[in-house]
Computed example of a mutant assay.
Amino acid sequence: MAEFETLSVRDVRKETPDAVSVAFDVPPELEDRFGFTPGQYLTLRATIAGEDVRRTYSICSGLDDGEIRVAVKRVEGGRFSGFVNEALKPGMTLDVMAPEGRFTCPATERAGHDYVAFAAGSGVTPVLSIVKTVLAREPDSRFTFFYGNRDTASIIFREALEDLKDRYLDRFTLIHVLSREGQDVDILHGRLSEEKVRAFAQAGLFDPATADRFFLCGPGDMIDTVETALAGLGVEARRIAVERFTPAGDAAPAAPSERAQEAAREGIEVEVVLDGATRRFELGEEDASIVDAGHRAGIEIPYSCKGGMCCTCRCKLVEGEVEMAANYALEPWELEAGFVLGCQSRPLTKKVVLDFDAA
């Protein structure tokens, strides 16, 4: 089961007026555990106003940066992002899980790939980690990055990206798309849209037929728009990696179905397998999910985003039926194999058995 380690904050750097990056000191005995693949994220935990609050933030450092750093953009009303931007200082500590995530790009020496990325806002964070590492470790690879923001002042890691562009003139193409600031070329003004993606392809800025891998990271509507455009250009789903950035932990979950509400009213027995031990608890009407019910019973079921975005709470449904309020993480084959997300699962039967140790 995923566990937290307490790490000291080495550095807090202001990146834009509403975003900071945070670097951690990792002691030698934890270096192997906190080794990461570009594109992965960290789950952070803090007690804020007496409440245990957890959020996931992508790693922005490359493998050769000599540090592990995440970016945190302030979200309106966001408890954790507000705390990090306003109160977190070097020398303070946070509970941190080891790196996780599937939005990755393991760099391969002597590879010659053509990568394309579309990101908006803080969606740049994992893309930056991937870009840094690929350009440094794959000398024959090319990377084209379309990055959407409101205006120049809101561009996170602007200097770092410009430095990469200057260093790798022949291999890194950076294209800024700004929604609230005019540019010399009309197509670069506005939001990333289907029309823009098609226009970029028609202009020869990327080749949908030959690009090896596409990385899409940002809000859900932007992801859907770009995915639709790429599909229309003949790009198969297997070539597209997606990471949705949504303040899910602060958003209200979808209402349970009538069947789930009826089952909860009657009382549900939940049995979970964690670290080889079987534990049982009851789920009632007050519980939004199996994870919430377990924590109310004092059982530390793993979770992080609580929004269906990550797989920290991935488990296998062994007995019974559940419905999921949302799922942005599990692949079709995992659903067919019986895997569910504990933070999104609501029982539909009087008893459910979930195995969190299942591979």
Score class of each variant (00 low, 15 high):
N85Q: 12
F34T: 09
A209Q: 00
D275W: 12
G342N: 03
L161A: 04
H113C: 14
E266D: 04
Q202S: 15
A153R: 11
C305V: 15
V116G: 00
T173D: 15
L230G: 00
P126Y: 08
V9H: 06
R10A: 09
G267F: 06
G66N: 05
V53A: 08
T108H: 04
H113D: 12
E138W: 02
D114M: 04
D292A: 05
E282T: 11
T43A: 14
D140M: 01
Q40S: 15
K14V: 00
D25E: 06
A255L: 13
E323L: 11
F206C: 10
A255G: 13
A2D: 12
A277W: 07
A2Y: 07
R158K: 13
L161N: 02
A87K: 01
A203M: 14
A160W: 03
E194I: 01
C60A: 01
Y57K: 09
R10Q: 09
D170I: 07
R13G: 14
R213K: 07
G62S: 04
R150V: 13
E323P: 07
R279G: 10
E29N: 14
A293V: 06
F143H: 03
N149H: 04
V273D: 14
P347N: 08
G298D: 14
Q40W: 09
D18C: 10
L94T: 09
I290V: 09
F36K: 07
L233H: 01
A297K: 12
V270F: 09
E194M: 05
I59W: 04
R198D: 11
T125F: 03
T152N: 13
A277V: 11
E319T: 05
D184S: 14
E31A: 11
L283T: 10
V116D: 00
A87G: 02
P17H: 10
C311G: 13
L230Q: 00
G220Y: 13
C343A: 11
L88W: 00
G39Q: 08
D64G: 04
R180M: 08
T6Y: 12
T93S: 11
A23N: 13
E194C: 09
L164E: 04
F145E: 00
R198E: 12
E109T: 14
R180P: 05
V131S: 03
K14A: 02
P139T: 06
D65S: 07
V177N: 02
V124Y: 02
A255D: 11
F83N: 00
Y303L: 03
E262Q: 07
D186Q: 12
Y328K: 03
R150W: 04
F215M: 13
E3M: 09
V340W: 02
P27Y: 03
D163Q: 10
D207Y: 14
M92E: 03
T152G: 14
Y147L: 06
R244F: 10
P106T: 13
D221Y: 10
R279I: 12
G249R: 02
C310R: 07
